[in-house]
Design a protein around this nucleic acid. Structure first.
Lengths: 252, 252
DNA sequence: CGTAAACTTGACCCTTTTCAAAGCCCGTGG
DNA sequence: CCACGGGCTTTGAAAAGGGTCAAGTTTACG
C-alpha cells in the first residue's frame, strides 16, 4: 500500500549512512569508515515476519540493522517464547553466533528490515587490523549485556505494571536516540501485545489489561501503530528507571 | 576454624595458575602468559559477604575470580533484589564497568574469594598489543550474554520447578568444568535459599517448597553445604536443558 | 465487503506470594 | 557443659497477582 513507509535500504556507501548523521554514534575517521565498508559483504532486506536467524542455525551472519525493527527470542519445546530484546536501527547483531556455536536464539524481523551484512568469519580481521574497532565491538557486547541485566531484573522482580512501564520507556528512549521520534513526539510501534507479553514474561491477557490500565491513567497513548508517552515522570517512577546520560555508541 | 577450607590464594606467577591446569581453558603461549601477568596489577582476597563491587560504584576494577564464589546483583529501591549470575573460578568480571560508566550492579563475595586484579583502564592495551586476547575478551562477553539469555528465558517463562532444576544443573556443570566436583560426585554449595530465590525471581518460601519437593523426589541431595545430583536425566528433562559440548574458554 | 488478525473483557482457577511461627544448627559466653 | 541467640530452613494458612479459557469487538486489508 504505502511503499513510502517501508524502511530505507542501506546506502551503497557507508559514508552516506543515515545513522551516522544522527549524532548518536561515535564519529570515525574516513579511512576507518572505508575499512568498515570493505568489511561489509552485502546488504540485504528482509520482509516483516521473516527470519534473520533461525533458532539453532549454524554459522549465522553478523550484521548491523540499518532500518526496521527485529527481535531476538528463544522458545521452549512446548511453545513458550521469551523475547530477549528488541533490535533497533544501529544495533549490531550476531556476535554470539559469530563465535562458532550454533545460534542459541532466533532473530525475527518485526517490520521490513534492511541489514548491512558482514563477511562471515572475518571478525578476527577487525581485531587484527583495527584494534580500536575490536575494542568497540567488545564495548558493544558489554553494553548489551548490561541491557540484559536490566531485563532480567524486570522479569524477575518487577510486577506487571512496572514491567510494562519499563518497556515503554526503554523503547522510547532508544528510538529517541537514533532520531526516530517524530515532531509530534510519537514513535512507530510495530509490536503487538503478544510481543510485549513474550518480552515481559506475562500472559497476553494480563498484558492487555495492564496496558489498558496505564492508558486509562493517561500515561501513554498507543494508536495507529504509534506510541506517545504522556507522562514520562510517572512512567519513570513506576518503572524506577531514570535516564542515564546518553553516550555515544560505536557503530560498525 | 578450618583454614584448610578457605580458598587458595592466587599464585604469584600465572604460569603456576591452578585453573590453567584444569584443561577447561584455551592454552596460551608462554610469552602471552607473561603479558597477562604483567597486565595483572595485584591479587586480592575478600572475605565471604564482602563487596567486590558496590552497586553504583564508579571506576570499578576488572578482575578474574581465582577461587571462591561470588554473584552479581541489582536491587530496586524497596529492596527487591535480583541476582544476575553467579561467579565461579575462572570468570572475568567487570567488563561492563570497565567501560566508563558507574557500575549498574553490585558484586558480592559468597565465600572467601581470591582475585587477580587487572590494571585500571589498561584494557585498551590488551587490544592494541595482543589482538588475539582482545578477541578472546569479546568472545567472553558474548558468551556471558548468551548465559544471560538463558537466564532471562528461565525467569520469564519457566515455572518454579523448572527454574530450580535449571539452576542446579547449570551450577553443577560449570563447577564440573573447572574441576570442582569431588570424588564422591558432590560440589561445594555455599548458596542459601534466599540467594536461590533472588536468582530465580521467586519468593523464599516458594523456593524452599520447590527445593524440598525435588529432594523428596530423589533428584538431588543438599547437605553440609554440598550438592549432589542424584538424577541428572530427570533434572535435564524438567529444565529442558541439555548438555552442550564443553568448549575451551579463554582465561585472562 | 468479508475475513483474519489483533485487541478487549469477564469469569474462574492456580501458582506463587505474604505473613507468621516453629524448628534446627552452631557458635558464644556464662 | 549448658543456656542463649541469630541465621537459615521448614511449614502452614490465607490472599493475591497473574494465568487460562472463552467469548466478543475492533481493525486491517485483500
Amino acid at each position: 500500500m504505502n511503499a513510502t513507509l517501508s524502511p530505507p535500504a542501506c546506502p551503497p556507501k557507508c559514508h552516506e549512512c543515515r545513522l551516522r548523521k544522527t549524532g548518536a554514534f561515535t564519529p570515525v575517521e574516513p579511512q576507518v569508515l572505508d575499512f568498515i565498508e570493505s568489511f561489509r559483504s552485502a546488504t540485504l532486506t528482509v520482509p516483516a515476519g521473516g527470519a534473520l536467524v533461525h533458532e539453532g542455525q549454524v554459522n549465522a551472519r553478523l550484521f548491523t540493522l540499518y532500518s526496521g525493527w527485529g527481535f531476538r527470542y528463544k522458545t521452549l519445546s512446548d511453545g513458550r517464547r521469551q523475547i530477549l530484546n528488541f533490535l533497533l536501527p544501529g544495533d549490531l547483531v550476531g556476535l554470539q553466533q559469530e563465535f562458532g556455536d550454533l545460534s542459541a536464539h532466533g532473530v525475527e524481523a518485526l517490520t521490513d528490515c534492511a541489514l548491512c551484512v558482514f563477511q562471515n568469519d572475518s571478525l578476527w580481521a577487525v581485531f587484527a587490523e583495527h584494534p580500536r574497532l575490536g575494542y568497540d565491538v567488545t564495548w558493544l557486547a558489554a553494553h548489551e549485556e548490561s541491557h540484559m541485566d536490566d531485563n532480567l531484573l524486570t522479569n524477575g522482580r518487577r510486577n506487571a505494571t512496572e514491567r510494562v512501564a519499563m518497556l515503554l520507556m526503554h523503547l522510547y528512549r532508544r528510538l529517541d536516540r537514533v532520531g526516530l521520534v517524530d515532531a509530534a513526539g510519537t514513535v512507530a510501534f510495530p509490536l503487538n501485545q503478544q510481543h510485549i507479553a513474550d518480552a515481559l514474561g506475562l500472559s497476553l491477557a494480563h498484558t492487555n489489561k495492564t496496558l489498558r490500565r496505564l492508558a486509562l491513567l493517561g500515561l501513554h497513548e498507543l494508536k495507529n501503530g504509534r506510541l506517545r508517552l504522556l507522562n514520562t515522570r510517572a512512567l519513570e517512577r513506576i518503572a524506577e528507571y531514570y535516564d542515564t546520560p546518553p553516550r555515544l555508541l560505536p557503530l560498525l
